[in-house]
Design a protein around this nucleic acid. Sequence first.
DNA 1: AATGCCCATTGCAGAGTATGCAATCAGCAT
DNA 2: ATGCTGATTGCATACTCTGCAATGGGCATT
Lengths: 256, 256
Amino acid sequence: MSQTVDRALSILPLLAEGPANLEQVAQRLDVHKSTALRLLRTLHEHGIVHRQADQRYRLGARLFALAQEAMENLDVREIAHPHLVELNAACGHTVHLAVYEEDEVLYIDKVESRYPVRMYSRIGKPVALTVAAVAKLLLADLPEPERRAVAERLDYPRYTSRSTPDAAAFLAELATVREQGWATDLGGHEESINCVAAPIRGAEGRVVAAMSVSAPNVVVSADELLTLLPRVRRTAEAISADYVGKPIRPAERDTP
Amino acid sequence: MSQTVDRALSILPLLAEGPANLEQVAQRLDVHKSTALRLLRTLHEHGIVHRQADQRYRLGARLFALAQEAMENLDVREIAHPHLVELNAACGHTVHLAVYEEDEVLYIDKVESRYPVRMYSRIGKPVALTVAAVAKLLLADLPEPERRAVAERLDYPRYTSRSTPDAAAFLAELATVREQGWATDLGGHEESINCVAAPIRGAEGRVVAAMSVSAPNVVVSADELLTLLPRVRRTAEAISADYVGKPIRPAERDTP
DNA sequence: AATGCCCATTGCAGAGTATGCAATCAGCAT
DNA sequence: ATGCTGATTGCATACTCTGCAATGGGCATT
């Protein structure tokens, strides 16, 4: 809609790949160097990009700070956190909280396992949509046409032999998940890691987030992990109750 | 430098505070609503902002993903990580890695303590500049005039009775730190938490990052933590050696 | 030390884009 | 139904951005 801003923003994913110099940026944007320079300067003034010693540009600190601040302000996260901690205290495994947003599912909170062998994941990291238990729950709740559309345009990487192979299988899985109100990922992403997940519902029953417990085979078998399901579901329901109960809207900020 | 981009970027910190509607954004930017709308639309198209059910805007998923990707691509982080893990395995405490960038110090990696009582921190979170051990190391290495300038313009919040009180004290502390090549924070940020930190140096001896080990009093006393100093310094030196040895510059991307 | 190359940077005039206005539309509460 | 609040659109104007070409700075080579 706005050409200038559009161009400026296009620089970001480009720099996310790694540092780049002025000419590289100009070429990738298909604009004159002087144009790219002005855009980069503006981004720089805002701390969004950083200029390193060799004059190349990369993404800047403020971007991290922004992402961080925004994450900390998410209502669900704040409400869910104590419940996640409690669940972790009870079972000891890694607990995740995730939300869906325009074709991406991402972890917004995490409580680390107390066991030495842990699952690798990181807050803010986009989740493997086609296999993750939390992704299934979040996508299963989309309105039918959109769900189908998303399923069609996804890739189905074969992380393991048990990864969801294609759109048809995925839609079928989503139907099941939607029906039963919980989901699992049994070695579909990492051969040796299993997850069980449950949905967190907002006011009108829409799934606003999903939480999961993950553990590697070497710690507990899939069967053992499944025995935690009732507990996970109860936690998710408790969070849902809190969430609809007090949609803490921290006093509308008004402008003087 | 570019008005339009400047305005668009000014929206981000505003939204980081929490969701806002069109009018609020327009007012804060001091532009017409239609202008704000177009800017928000552009940001939206790029996934930088997200529009929630109540039509208000907030920061979007792509922002998190970008911050994440950028972080993962930092050379130092990649090189340092295995060393941090090793140190954590040896001592069990929380290990942090931090860098300085334009008036901010932020954690770019972390290995969690194995003890149940842990320090709160989060990757990407800006660090308390005036007290954190890693911040002291990073700031101590700035060229004299800049170091002074930064010290002067900082605030000196009294987190605890042992927080650095003012610019003079801070500059003195930085001189010491610079001299001795390591730093501590003994209850200067959180009364009950101590840290010891060591610098990671790049090619010309410049401090490019800093790492620290942190532990609460209830786990180990400050004195006990200090016994880890040689080990921390050795780890930092090992990372430095790796870093100058192979400044992995992942093959310049060229544009077709 | 001098030269040449590469890349960043700047001034400027033209072109195109962003802006603000005012009107319209949509949703919600009265 | 009616009136409010807030989002959205079309359009002419003015201003901002753009690309060019020239300048400048840093670095390696001779």
